[in-house]
């Protein structure tokens, strides 16, 4: 896979409609949205975040942690029945304390997994790096499958370069 990129300064805003306008032009020229990436050193307010399922997954993770904790504690306590001298073997309040912690832990882990998978992050992955990227700049990348597509993309980006 080949990646074609264009480096633009954010200040002054590139093009008439800014960076989002540049991306929109690329899409009008027939480049699929998933092929276009905008790289930056800082989050860009020009691109508002789309709705995300992360909070829902966090709640799911919390539910998983909650039920896993209760299930494990009850199973372990019943697995080794202790003489408690008339005290209850399983008491809800102390279990609640540990369950609370496990609930929040489940939520955190679920959100972390959502982030790592959704943002394609992970220790084993390799990605094209752009060490030339600076603060106050952005890099518009277009992923291309072959040399011909790359040539077209390069032409297109050169035409759109605000610095030209």
């Amino acid at each position: 896979m080949i990646e074609v990129s264009l480096r633009v300064a954010l200040d002054p805003p590139p093009g008439g409609a800014g960076l989002p306008g540049l991306v929109a032009r690329l899409r009008r020229e027939g480049i699929a949205e998933r092929r276009i990436q905008v790289l930056s050193r800082e989050p860009l307010p020009e691109f508002p975040p789309p709705p995300s399922s992360m909070s829902k997954l966090g709640i799911l993770g919390a539910l998983f942690g909650f039920s896993a904790a209760i299930g494990a504690i009850v199973a372990m306590t019943l697995g080794y029945r202790l003489h408690t001298g008339g005290m209850p073997l399983i008491s809800p309040l102390p279990i609640g304390v540990i369950t609370y912690e496990m609930t929040l832990l489940g939520s955190i882990i679920a959100m972390l997994l959502h982030l790592l998978l959704g943002a394609r992050l992970g220790p084993g992955r390799r990605a094209v790096e752009h060490p030339e990227l600076n603060f106050g700049e952005a890099i518009v990348c277009v992923a291309c499958s072959d040399a011909e597509q790359a040539w077209q993309a390069r032409q297109l980006l050169a035409a759109l370069d605000p610095a030209r």
């Binding site: 990436q37 992050l121 752009h130």
Partner: peptide, 21 residues
Amino acid sequence: AMSWRGTQQQWHRLELAIQLM
């Protein structure tokens, strides 16, 4: 860095994750 590139998808998810966490 776990192959962090700084794409807007990554930024959106990261900022949301930090906020929720």
